[in-house]
Design a protein around this nucleic acid. Structure first.
Length: 418
DNA sequence: TCTGGGGTCCTAGGACCC
DNA sequence: TCTGGGGTCCTAGGACCC
């Protein structure tokens, strides 16, 4: 049945930066960084010309500027990223309906049903690359193999702007010389742990007894790796995926936590989260906050309620208690640099809402409003925003604007609902 | 002059139940 | 009177991915 290299992984190259070069011809061939600047902020994406200097996504702008003095910083056209990402996905959907989009700029495809129309996987990969280049104007790399994991590695090897097909039977020859860091799930920490034991390539990893690998990396990652080594990797391409958590966070600079500003920031974050939950018809029982202190140490506190919630006010109140419990456990006078709120243990809200309106005794109700009243407030704010735009009404946004972090369009892009 | 924002999954200990 | 074994849920932290 699935005898060929029929799983494809298609991945746009330096996506945000390539879009900027597409939109502005003057940027083509030049080192470009999206986001950040020589004085601050972080680089969200770097063009290949910039990567040649060592500039990477996530890097502080001042460091990028030092590595590459000619670096051009651009603000980013987030609406265009979404539109062009969607255009590329439309090209893929033309090839097969079995497409699993895993982020704005990459997707898996199962082309086993498309080979009779378009030829072998190598031909399909080449066709996708040509069409994306011709119809959208962007470079895209494609990997093809028998499994998703391998296809993903192949597309990384193909970059930039290439195609790599791992024919069945040639997997070991392909993988053995590659660095372990190309394996999904092996990041900097695990790569270092392996290097400490002299394991640097996937071949060396494969030659290590799986019991030893599990001791080094833990049970789960170890098992995943040995599954890959034995070609027992997942190859199913899922066309739908549902969210397991919804969250929001905001970097604050460094500040002493005080009641008013913590409350304002949490209200804003809770508002963002609860609005998105309601949009999806979801509510969640577990509320988690993260507090990051100076020095990047962060602490989480969570609380699981008896009933799922999706109202801004309840979320804010619970989050506030959790944040103060984390701050109170920290050394006196600690400054904080980030607050995050997230909701998990999600359930469909429509059934819940009915149940709660019949029996409106919710846990955690230090405020005065009942659950039904709180939902009514949220409902009218949702309606105003859908008529007049997202900024028409809101909670505490001014505190955040003071230290303007990242544009809202980027937040929306980062939300995984694609 | 320190590092954005949105996620997923795993681990490990403790509480609690049978 | 000193103790089994299994299961589930919760909490906190960590690694990783885009």
């Amino acid at each position: 049945m699935d005898s060929g290299a029929t799983i494809l992984h298609a991945d746009l190259d330096a996506f945000y930066a390539s879009v900027e070069q597409l939109l502005d011809p003057a940027l083509r061939g030049r080192p470009v960084a999206v986001g950040g600047g020589p004085t601050g902020g972080v680089v969200l994406a770097a063009s290949y010309e910039a990567k040649a200097y060592g500039v990477q996504g996530g890097m502080p702008g001042w460091r990028a500027a030092r590595l590459c003095p000619e670096l051009v910083f651009v603000g980013g056209h987030f609406g265009e990223y979404r539109r062009l990402g969607d255009d590329v996905m439309a090209v893929l959907a033309d090839v097969t309906p079995v497409v699993q989009r895993i982020s704005i700029d990459e997707a898996f495809l199962d082309v086993s049903g498309a080979t009779h129309l378009f030829g072998p996987p190598a031909a399909i990969g080449a066709m996708i690359r040509e069409r994306v280049r011709a119809q959208v104007g962007l470079p895209i790399s494609v990997g093809a193999a028998r499994t998703k994991h391998l296809a993903k590695i192949a597309s990384q090897v193909a970059k930039p702007d290439g195609l790599v097909v791992v024919e069945p039977g040639s997997e070991r020859d392909f993988l053995d010389p590659l660095p372990v860091g190309l394996v999904w799930g092996v990041g900097p920490v695990n790569a270092q742990r392996l290097a400490d034991r002299g394991i640097r390539t996937i071949g060396e990893l494969a030659a290590t007894p799986s019991s030893a690998v599990e001791r080094i990396l833990g049970h789960a990652v170890g098992r995943k790796l040995s599954a890959m080594a034995h070609d027992e990797d997942p190859r199913r391409v899922h066309t739908v995926q549902r969210a397991r958590s919804v969250g929001a966070q905001s970097a604050l600079g460094r500040r002493r936590p005080d009641v008013a500003s913590v409350r304002a920031v949490l209200a804003h974050l809770a508002d963002r989260v609860s609005r998105r939950l309601r949009d999806k018809g979801l509510a969640g029982r577990t509320i988690t906050v993260r507090v990051r202190f100076v020095g990047m140490q962060s602490v989480t506190r969570s609380r699981t309620l008896a009933q799922p919630v999706a109202t801004t006010l309840t979320l804010t109140e619970v989050a506030e208690r959790l944040v103060w419990s984390a701050v109170d456990d920290a050394p006196r006078g600690s400054e904080i640099t980030l607050l995050a709120v997230s909701v998990s243990n999600l359930a469909d809200q429509r059934a819940i809402q009915l149940e709660l309106d019949l029996r409106p005794d919710e846990p955690w109700r230090p405020g005065s409003a009942t659950g039904a009243a709180r939902r009514a407030v949220d409902g009218s704010m949702d309606r105003i925003r859908s008529r007049f735009g997202g900024d028409a009404v809101g909670y505490g946004a001014a505190v955040l604007r003071a230290r303007s972090g990242v544009p809202d369009e980027f937040r929306e892009l980062a939300e995984h609902d694609l």
